[in-house]
Amino acid sequence: MRYLVWLLRLVVFIIVLLFALKNTGPVDINFFAGHVVTDVPLIVVMLVVFVLGIALGLLIAAPAVLRARREKARLRRDIARLEEKNRQLPAAPAEAMAPETVAPMAPL
């Protein structure tokens, strides 16, 4: 399975590399207020937009990740507290009880 994952990663890397090599032509970038940057390779523009997208995605996902970590820590504390409480309880009786002693059978 591990080799299959690495093979898939290699195939994706080769496809992205070939795509990058095919898109090296110069482009003009138009910003607001008439500001223009000329002759920028297309792959550079694509890479910058990709990195900005990743950064924005991580920034948006950060609160949910932090909330999940806090919840996980709280649940671990609760488990530890309950396990400690369970250790302090007296031991259960060793002999088995007959079902009739717990809940008497109803008459037929």
Rank of each mutant, 00 (worst) to 15 (best):
M1E: 04
Y3L: 08
W6Q: 09
L8R: 03
V12F: 12
I14C: 11
I14K: 02
V16A: 08
V16M: 10
L17V: 13
L17S: 00
L18R: 13
L18K: 07
L18D: 07
F19N: 06
A20H: 05
L21V: 15
K22S: 15
G25R: 09
D28Q: 12
D28E: 14
I29S: 00
N30D: 09
N30V: 15
F32K: 02
H35G: 05
T38C: 04
D39H: 15
D39Y: 00
V40I: 13
P41F: 01
L42C: 09
M46P: 09
M46T: 13
L47F: 14
F50D: 01
L56Y: 12
L59E: 07
V65A: 06
R69P: 03
R70G: 11
E71M: 00
E71G: 02
E71N: 07
A73S: 12
A73Q: 03
L75D: 01
R76W: 13
R76Q: 10
R77P: 03
I79V: 13
R81T: 12
L82M: 07
E84V: 03
K85V: 02
P90M: 04
A91E: 10
A92Y: 10
A92S: 04
P93F: 01
E95S: 02
E95A: 00
A96Y: 11
P99F: 12
T101Y: 12
T101F: 10
V102M: 08
M105N: 05
P107F: 08
